[in-house]
């Protein structure tokens, strides 16, 4: 069936589910504002000592931070809930039912769960990005915004794939909570543009846990720092990551033994 429709049906169901737990909204909003305040204070401190951080001005860094919050919100709202559910289903054997559905199993496990309240981060992230853009000295054109949207989409795809690949290891290892927590830790590194890190770490953050494509590249698009070749690289890279993820997913399914009755 149409993936968009399927995703929408599930989104609707899990939203209905989540709406029963209103307190979660206040919790998510409080968390998001706290994280934002800490981030702003740190940026403020850094720029009270210097004009630019490895070539990045304060408004540019605000954009990076906004994208970081935005993508983080997407991960927490749509990616992580599904990955935790998948992990739990593999451990408890409840994936059985999902696999008997006449729809693509990878699609099904990727759209089942949503933490709808985490979308508060999306709003906050976009506001921070907007403030950064307004403070920029240069004019922002339609081309910049288009490149931003395109690279954000590619970034989301790449992040989703990486998370799914790691979770798929649960087919073999059963418990992978630690790895997912590690991903959350590494994600914090995306708060800063990858170009400020030493070369070895930059490589890791670009191609192993590709935060560069998910966060720095979209921010670069808005800050007029993006080369066309980087977009091409992002497209090619996400295509490769999607293909590899698909293969790993298939391998995982073939290894699924289910928990015994």
């Amino acid at each position: 069936m149409n993936p968009v429709k399927l995703g929408w049906m599930h989104l609707r169901i899990s939203a209905l589910n989540e709406l029963q737990y209103r307190a979660n909204f206040f919790l998510a909003a409080f968390n998001a504002l706290l994280a934002l305040a800490t981030g702003l204070i740190v940026i403020g401190l850094v720029y009270s000592h210097t004009e630019s951080l490895n070539g990045w001005s304060q408004p540019e860094l605000l954009i990076v931070m906004g994208v970081h919050v935005f993508i983080g919100g997407l991960i927490r709202a749509f990616v992580e809930p599904n990955m935790y559910q998948l992990m739990q289903d593999i451990e408890e054997g409840t994936l059985d039912y999902t696999l008997t559905r006449p729809a693509d199993a990878q699609l099904l496990v990727s759209v089942r769960a949503t933490s709808i309240w985490q979308t508060v981060d999306l709003a906050i992230g976009l506001i921070v990005v907007a403030i950064g853009v307004v403070q920029l000295q240069t004019a922002t054109t339609v081309a910049h915004v288009t490149a931003f949207i395109l690279t954000i989409l590619l970034g989301v795809v790449i992040i989703y794939c990486v998370w799914l690949m790691i979770t798929t290891a649960a087919f073999k290892l059963i418990r992978v909570d630690n790895m997912v927590q590690m991903l959350q830790g590494i994600y914090q590194a995306g708060r800063w543009p990858v170009s400020i890190y030493p070369l070895w770490l930059r490589g890791g953050l670009t191609f192993i846990i590709p935060l560069a494509f998910a966060i720095t590249v979209p921010a670069e698009a808005l800050a007029d720092r993006l080369a066309g070749s980087t977009i091409a690289l992002a497209v090619a890279f996400s295509a490769v990551v999607m293909l590899v993820t698909r293969l790993i997913w298939r391998w995982g399914l073939a290894n699924y033994s289910g928990a015994s009755a």
Partner: peptide
């Protein structure tokens, strides 16, 4: 609600 979801799937 789950019935409706099954209808769609």
């Amino acid at each position: 609600d789950s019935f409706d979801l099954n209808k769609a799937i």
